[in-house]
């Protein structure tokens, strides 16, 4: 045994079995029922767009890492998650090349220019989506009805009271591929929470604020949170770890902030849908929130004659 080389390293000498790869894989698994629902409602378009987006994101990640002279990082799974999220947040009628372009922008401008995984201030999938929305405004707002593919308006455009709640809940409505079925999204959210990759503070702060404000301002809160991107964003975007505050109080404030901005944009803004920009704005505010909400350190500010 004396001859044997002993490993010298500082404590701790044991590590948890969870890993960043597993976290990303958990999100991918959580996205499967959502994708499944979108295939059910929108058929092959859902397969086409999500596969293209995911493939483009992963390839773009590999190429950009190589260009930056960094080791390959596609195995961490983050690019796959970004691609799937982007693919699921576009309308079913979008041409494939557009979603490919969106994925390249998401990875390139949304993530790699900042240094890759963990360094991006903005949610990459939303950067891609914002790029597509502003560059291709018409295709990005051309909606199709589920099953028959005939073009139709989204419930959000129709206004509350037109589409029954049950359709909103199950998802048989016009909308972005993965965003229509509240049921599938809730399942995904519960799974992610159970696996410890979803901090409930952010979605809860977001949804509670939106519901409260809509109610106070005389709008139908249930209709609002079940239509458009709110539920999808609440589970998959607002919970993005990299681009949200690291403090617990900060995460509550972040969720509330997104809720306020979404409500303002939906009720008074020109955009039909405010979620993308609300989250991007709050991403920008994240460093500030972190600074304001630093937790009290153990033993500081205690009175000695306790």
């Amino acid at each position: 045994m004396e001859q044997q080389q002993l490993i010298l390293a500082s404590s701790p000498h044991v590590r948890d079995t969870d890993s960043t790869q597993k976290i990303m894989l958990t999100v991918v698994v959580a996205l499967l029922p959502v994708w499944g629902a979108s295939i059910y409602f929108f058929g092959l378009d859902a397969v086409r767009l999500v596969l293209w987006a995911a493939a483009a994101a992963v390839v773009a990640e590999a190429i950009f890492q190589r260009l930056r002279g960094k080791p390959s990082s596609t195995h961490d799974g983050s690019a796959l998650v970004t691609g799937m999220l982007l693919g699921l947040s576009v309308p079913p009628t979008l041409p494939s090349w557009m979603v490919v372009l969106g994925a390249i922008v998401a990875i390139g401008l949304g993530k790699q220019v900042f240094g890759g995984l963990g360094h991006n201030p903005f949610n990459p999938a939303l950067v891609g989506r914002a790029f597509l929305t502003t560059s291709f405004a018409v295709p990005m707002t051309t909606w199709a009805r589920p099953f028959d593919g005939i073009s139709g308006a989204t419930p959000l455009a129709l206004g509350s009271g037109v589409v029954p709640y049950s359709d909103l809940f199950f998802g048989s409505i016009a909308g972005s591929l993965g965003e229509t079925s509240v049921l599938a999204i809730l399942l995904a959210g519960i799974f992610m929470f159970y696996r410890g990759v979803l901090d409930f503070r952010m979605p809860l702060g977001f949804l509670a604020t939106t519901i409260g404000l809509m109610f106070v301002l005389g709008h139908d809160p249930l209709f609002h949170i079940m239509s458009g991107s709110i539920m999808f964003a609440a589970v998959f975007m607002v919970t993005c770890m990299v681009t949200t505050p690291v403090t617990r109080r900060g995460r509550v404030i972040y969720g509330i902030g997104v809720g306020i901005i979404v409500t303002v944009i939906r009720l008074w803004g020109n955009l039909p849908e405010g979620v993308t920009f609300a989250i991007l704005l709050m991403n920008a505010a994240t460093p500030l929130i972190n600074r304001w909400t630093r937790p009290r350190i153990f033993g500081q500010g205690v009175t000695l004659d306790a």
């Binding site: 995984l117 949200t244 690291v246």
Partner: peptide
């Protein structure tokens, strides 16, 4: 180690 994903 991978980059910090700020999971907190």
């Amino acid at each position: 180690p991978l980059a910090c994903i700020k999971c907190s």
